Simulated scan of single mutants.
Amino acid sequence: MRLAAPSTTAETIREAAVRVFGREGLGAPLRSVAAEAGVSAGRIVQLFGSKDALHRACDEHVLAVVRDLKREGMTDAGASLLTRLAMVDGLVPYVAYIARSVQAGGEHARTFVQHMVDDAMGYVADAVAAGVVRPSHDEGARVRYLTESALGHLALRLSLDAPRDGDELVACLRRHLDSTTLPLLELFTQGFLADRRMLDEYLMYVGDPPAREQAQA
């Protein structure tokens, strides 16, 4: 996937907003977005109506970018991995925006994460159908765990490193990628446990729980 350059004033503002909100947090003022985009705050209001509407436009765009990249990567993992690694600097604003959305907490964060889970259900299903990913006993639970784990790790990294400007943010996210790619690929490809005894025991347990727990249910 190649990221398209903005072609309208609204797209330019939206891209600027993604960068600003990623650097400064979702509470960054419209004047910061206006300065980044080279327009007036009034022009932003004219095109988007409100800061909340601008946030929604950023959410939709970032989610679409992630969804397309993930779908491409999950169904053609080997061919696209090096391409995605080469693109990381260009993706920094989107990754930072995602992290800030999670860090913001509240209803916005819950809604944003749920959208990511819903999108992941789609591209993971495609990957399972393509034979790239193994099926799960509970796909919804697996997708939610993987999504929330990745987002939590990312938000934690930005909280611990607390980059002060765009250059530090790029360096922070590059370190994050460098430190997580190998263990993630290793875990996802080779697994962690040497045998499936614990899984089989758990599946037996949840399929036929002890009588004491059945009585408490």
Rank of each mutant, 00 (worst) to 15 (best):
A4V: 15
A5L: 09
S7T: 09
S7E: 09
T9G: 00
T9P: 00
E11Q: 12
E11G: 13
E11Y: 05
R14W: 11
R14T: 07
E15T: 14
A17R: 00
V18C: 01
F21N: 02
G22S: 06
G22T: 02
R23M: 14
R23L: 15
E24S: 13
G25N: 07
A28W: 02
A28Y: 05
P29F: 01
P29A: 01
V33Q: 01
A34P: 08
E36F: 03
A37G: 08
A37Y: 15
A37N: 08
S40Q: 04
G42E: 05
R43Q: 09
R43E: 08
R43N: 07
I44F: 00
I44T: 02
I44G: 00
L47T: 05
F48S: 02
G49L: 07
K51E: 04
K51V: 12
D52R: 10
H55E: 06
A57K: 03
C58H: 04
H61C: 04
A64D: 13
A64N: 07
V65L: 10
V65W: 05
V66R: 07
R67S: 03
D68M: 08
R71H: 04
M74R: 03
S80K: 15
S80I: 02
S80T: 14
T83A: 02
M87G: 05
V88G: 03
G90D: 10
P93F: 12
P93W: 12
Y94R: 03
Y94E: 04
Y94A: 02
V95Q: 10
A96H: 11
Y97I: 01
A99Q: 04
V102Y: 09
G105Q: 10
E107N: 07
E107A: 08
H108L: 07
F112C: 03
Q114C: 05
M116Q: 06
M116H: 11
V117G: 07
V117I: 14
V117H: 08
D118Q: 13
D118R: 14
D118M: 08
A120H: 07
A120I: 01
A120M: 05
V124L: 02
A129R: 14
A129F: 10
A130P: 05
V133I: 13
P135Q: 10
S136F: 11
D138Q: 12
D138V: 09
E139I: 15
V143R: 06
V143Q: 06
S149D: 14
A150W: 12
A150C: 09
L151C: 06
H153K: 09
L154A: 05
L156S: 13
R157L: 07
L160V: 15
D161H: 12
A162W: 12
R164I: 04
R164H: 11
D165Q: 00
D165E: 01
D165T: 00
E168V: 02
A171D: 12
R174E: 01
R175C: 01
L177E: 05
D178P: 03
S179F: 07
T180N: 08
T180H: 03
P183L: 13
P183V: 12
L187C: 07
F188E: 13
T189A: 13
Q190H: 14
R197V: 13
L199N: 09
Y202I: 15
M204V: 08
Y205D: 04
V206S: 15
G207C: 05
D208P: 00
P210I: 10
R212T: 12
R212D: 12
E213C: 04
Q216N: 10
A217K: 14
A217D: 15
